[in-house]
Design a protein around this nucleic acid. Structure first.
Lengths: 308, 308
DNA sequence: AATGGCATGTCTACAGCGTACACATCGGGT
DNA sequence: ACCCGATGTGTACGCTGTAGACATGCCATT
């Protein structure tokens, strides 16, 4: 050990300064991405910011794809939380701060929960709140949309978020496959809005010009649009003067659609009195009790026998 | 001209072989992207395929961003077309083949069109067909999702497609701003589904393993999922056995939502019998005929006068 | 106490990307 | 005859992710 500086540092320096660690890497990467976008997170820049060389990162992370996966789940911390009335809300960042509130502290799936006595009530408000929460998360971490990957193994935070959506959606009484489909649909609405919002934010930062101003200067484009009758009629009628927020509109329409679907399908949630298979009522008339003529006949014979 | 080869070529070679041209570049780029994804379209590879050097491309295109914009609009050719019963359907490819069917050959916005006598009828079927057409386009060009850009100037094909969606949606009788919002919403559903489909396709090609198989091997993930009660209950109940197609489900729910919105809002489309301004019915009760008490009183006085 | 092995960090190098810049060639108008 | 713009070529720069060889320090075993 010919270097006394190094000795001094090791002997007297703050002990925690030294090690690179997975947590520090991921946390710093998330900060970098929050500030400058996922594109700004290169291994070199990240290493620089951490005060190490590029290749040091590879001692803790096998490659960039995995790093992004870790960032992704870290950023999703808290989305799955039940919004309860407790004041502590901002427990977000960091893969180390185990913000995942253990799904087992569950919001009353089995025994009746105290706060909301009726099981199916207010799924719509809760699902809307969940969606808005997701949009908030995406607004805090605009790069999330760029980090999407259909083959990514979901982490605890991602699963917790989806579990929460399923728990809410399940209260609608829709059949299981549709619960998943509906929750996924709303999740997709959130992801789509987040993507548009993030892309616009990036464009604005990249060009230095705001949305309104940029599109206001496209006169050479608008000159061509007279040829499209519906488009120009709608424009003349003020369709673009005060457009509704596209996320709100999409979310409300989607929830309307799910609501309509519930009206159509919940009556299918009845079991055949004989064989237990689901019974689909007709579009009108007296509700059916049996799934088929065979079962009805079987029930009839059974009744005859026991009554006799 | 010391080079006799060059002379021979110029004198005897096929005349059209020579020039690089914007059309050829864009067409070839689209082919390349169709076959190997947008990521495979680098200026070097594209130039190689065309038999020129990289920098030759820059004599025709200012940069890659513009090239992608040209590819994008070229790939959208045909989406805006009215699906009339004519057998010629596959007029898709190429920025040169002016496939845009001139929006002025319009589908009966003004005078009553012959084929569909009732104006509002079947907006739902038409909009669904438009959405499916869009998904088809995206399936033929899976890279379209990667080429999205909120600040891109739309080309004629993109505008034609949106015009078609607006034309259909306008038949619902929704107010102008909502026509745009609803059409955009459906467009977003298409884009979202296309994105998921493309990402999955790329993952499949990249890993060489199909969706089912890949997720079937994630046992080490599923081992963790017991902790999530709703998720595992739904799984046990078979929610994942025969999942509905996510695009179909999302599209139908979205159209349901628009339908519900029409029921809620179309009654607002009535004009005050006195001043002509729009009259909003209350949430219940007898429909209003006047926009204000003042107008009602004016109408009453007018009636008294004319009857007397 | 010495030693071997492993974890950690560093350095150099490579293939790929978009594109700026200097240069060669050719056709057409002054 | 001359020049000039359009077109195509070749080289080079800075950026990316990461493979591979090398140095160092700590821990467990001998």
């Amino acid at each position: 050990m010919a270097n006394p500086e190094r000795s001094t540092e090791l002997l007297w320096g703050s002990r925690t300064r030294g090690g690179l660690s997975l947590d520090r890497i991921v946390r710093t990467a998330v900060e970098l991405a929050d500030a400058e976008g996922l594109g700004a997170v290169s291994m070199r820049r990240l290493a620089d910011r951490l005060g190490f060389t590029t290749m040091a990162l590879y001692r803790h992370v096998p490659g960039k794809a995995v790093l992004v996966a870790l960032m992704y789940d870290a950023a999703l911390a808290g989305w799955g939380a039940v919004p309860g009335p407790d004041p502590e809300t901002s427990t977000d960042t960091g893969p180390g701060s185990d913000a995942t509130p253990g799904p087992d502290a569950n919001p009353g799936s089995g025994a009746g929960s105290v706060t909301s006595p009726d099981p199916g009530a207010d799924w719509r408000a809760d699902l809307a709140a969940w969606a808005r929460g997701g949009l908030d998360v995406h607004r805090r971490h605009p790069w999330l949309a760029d980090a999407e990957d259909p083959r990514r193994v979901p982490g605890p935070n991602a699963v917790a978020a989806f579990e929460r959506a399923l728990e809410i959606t399940a209260r609608t009484g829709l059949p299981p496959a549709e619960v998943v489909a509906a929750a996924s649909l709303v999740s997709g609405v959130v992801a789509g809005a987040a993507q548009r919002s993030a892309a616009e934010a990036r464009a604005e930062r990249g060009s230095g010009v705001g949305f309104e101003e940029w599109w206001g200067r496209r006169d050479s484009l608008y000159a061509h649009l007279d040829r499209y009758p519906t488009l120009s009629r709608l424009y003349r009628e003020g369709a673009y003067d005060a457009p509704p927020d596209s996320f709100d509109y999409g979310l409300e329409r989607t929830l309307d659609g799910i609501e309509a679907r519930i009206r159509d399908v919940v009556r299918y949630e009845k079991a055949c009195e004989v064989c237990g298979r689901p019974v689909a009522d007709g579009p009108a008339g007296r509700p059916r009790a049996y799934c088929s003529a065979a079962c009805r006949q079987r029930a009839y014979r059974h009744r005859r026998r026991t009554e006799a």
